[in-house]
Amino acid sequence: MDNWMCSAKEDLCRYIGQTVTIFTTSGGYSGSGFTGVLISVSDCIVRLLINAGDAPSCPLGSSCSGYRYNYNQSYGCSGNPLGAIAIIPTNSIAAFTHNAI
């Protein structure tokens, strides 16, 4: 690992739990950057929560029958319960941005 990546990893670690944008050396949509909440940083990968899942509409796990919930055949009582995580190889990171606070 070169010196740039060592210092970048240390900088990234300070922003775990905050929203960052990571730009990669790849082309297409991924080269435009990923924005999300920084979850973890390791020597090999960075994980960003780029789309949080919905909160459950039926917190007790009921079938929602007889209640005024938005029941969806595909997902049950909630919307999409899953979020989306971007896993970015650290050797593909070109730059990252964060708020200055």
Rank of each mutant, 00 (worst) to 15 (best):
S62G: 13
G61K: 04
G61C: 02
S30D: 12
I85M: 08
A8N: 03
V41C: 10
S63Q: 08
Y71S: 11
D11N: 12
S7I: 14
V37D: 06
S40H: 05
A8Y: 05
C6F: 13
I45E: 15
T90H: 01
V37W: 00
A8H: 02
I101G: 05
Q73W: 14
I87P: 02
L12K: 03
G31R: 00
N80G: 04
I16K: 15
G33E: 00
L82H: 14
L60I: 04
S63T: 15
I87C: 10
C77H: 01
M5N: 09
S74P: 02
S92F: 07
C13L: 14
I101H: 02
S40W: 05
V46H: 06
Q18C: 13
S26Q: 12
S40A: 11
S78T: 13
I93H: 06
D54F: 09
G66C: 05
P56W: 04
T21E: 11
N99A: 13
T25G: 08
I39D: 11
F96W: 13
H98F: 04
N72R: 06
D2R: 03
T21M: 10
A94I: 03
G53I: 12
A94C: 06
M5Q: 12
C77A: 02
Y69C: 11
P59E: 14
S65V: 05
C6E: 08
G31S: 00
T19K: 15
P56I: 04
T25V: 09
S74G: 08
L49Y: 06
F23V: 08
A86T: 02
P81T: 03
A95R: 01
T90C: 00
Y29I: 05
Y15R: 13
T35I: 07
C77F: 05
G33L: 04
K9S: 08
G76W: 07
V37A: 02
Y67Q: 15
S65I: 11
A8Q: 12
L38V: 06
C44S: 08
S26C: 12
D54R: 10
V20T: 04
S40M: 07
S78P: 01
R14W: 02
S30I: 07
G76K: 13
N72S: 09
